[in-house]
Every structure is written in structure tokens, then in C-alpha cells.
């Protein structure tokens, strides 16, 4: 059992964590790290596990989201990573599904050779170089939306007459 004393709340979370829960947290962290292309970075792994335990201890997941413990942990991992990405990139909207996924893409591209793995979820330090690397790798699926209507033509009226009127 890791040292997870949450001093601010006056009790030790670790005391309540069962072996099954520990395994679930570790599995969840591993899956999330794998989804960011981080296979074996102890620091990143520990940071995410800590974040998950923090979230559980702080009871930060909304009650209506508590479909299962796995969902709670996934939500906590998502929020922790999105928060960190927001800090790194300076963008506010990192929590949305599309923007989060796009940043995940960018991180995976930038981290192909694992150079940014150790910085994952690192809340301290200067991340401008990482932000630059992410911005270079950001995909842009579509240009800006410029909505307009394409009216259906009819076979009864002359377009010229309508135009003239």
C-alpha cells in the first residue's frame, strides 16, 4: 500500500483501500497511460495513481456520474489529464471530447520516441517546450465553419424570375 495520507481531511485514505481497489486504480492508470502512449514511466504512473486517489479521497466525482467505480476512476483520470493539458497549452477547453482527443493525438505524435513521458501530469515546471511540440502536432480536421443555406431549386419556377423578383 502506498502512502496516501490525506492530511487535510484528517484520515488515511490508504487505510480504507482494499487490495481490489488498488488493483483497479493501477489498472485504470495503466490503461490511461497506454492511451497516451506511455508504456513504462514510473513517474507518470505514480502521478496518475495519485491523482486518482486524490479524486476518490476528495470525493470529487459528481454523484450522478457514479455508474460504477470504473466510471468514477475514468472520469477522474480524464479530468486530471485534461486539467494538466489545459495548464500546459494554456487552452481552457481541454475537457471537451473532441479537444481532449485532439490533444491526445498531438501528445501521441509528439511522444513517439517517449521523450515527453516523464513530463506527463507533471504539475511543476515550465512546459513551454511541450506546448510548442503539441501545437506543431495538432491536427485540424476542418476549417472554420461558414454556414449558409443551399436552397433547393424547383422545377416549376424559373430561377431568373425569382432572382429578378
Amino acid at each position: 500500500m502506498t502512502d496516501m495520507t490525506v492530511a487535510s481531511q484528517g484520515f488515511s485514505y490508504a487505510a480504507f483501500e482494499s487490495a481490489a481497489m488498488t488493483r483497479l486504480i493501477e489498472d485504470t492508470a495503466r490503461a490511461w497511460l497506454r492511451s497516451f502512449g506511455i508504456m513504462s514511466d514510473a513517474q507518470a504512473n505514480q502521478r496518475l495513481i495519485n491523482a486518482l486517489r486524490d479524486a476518490l479521497a476528495a470525493d470529487s466525482v459528481a454523484s450522478h456520474d457514479r455508474a460504477s467505480m470504473q466510471d468514477i476512476l475514468d472520469q477522474a483520470a480524464h479530468d486530471a489529464i485534461a486539467g494538466w493539458l489545459a495548464r500546459v497549452t494554456g487552452q481552457q477547453d481541454c475537457y471537451g471530447s473532441a479537444s481532449f482527443s485532439m490533444l491526445r493525438c498531438a501528445f501521441l505524435s509528439a511522444n513517439r520516441d517517449g521523450i515527453w513521458s516523464s513530463r506527463f501530469l507533471d504539475q511543476d515546471g515550465d512546459h513551454r517546450d511541450l506546448a510548442m511540440a503539441l501545437s506543431v502536432q495538432m491536427m485540424l480536421p476542418t476549417p472554420s465553419l461558414k454556414a449558409c443555406e443551399m436552397p433547393r431549386q424547383t422545377l416549376e419556377k424559373r430561377a431568373l424570375e425569382r432572382r429578378a423578383s
Binding site: 492511451s35 471530447s97 473532441a98 482527443s101 491526445r104 493525438c105 501521441l108
Partner: peptide
Amino acid sequence: DPYANALHSALLPV
């Protein structure tokens, strides 16, 4: 493939 997964999620309409 995590990259394919992330890319796919990113390209889905919101």
C-alpha cells in the same frame, strides 16, 4: 492503437 483511437474520437461530431 491509441493514436487511431484518439484520432477517431477527435473526428467525431460533438
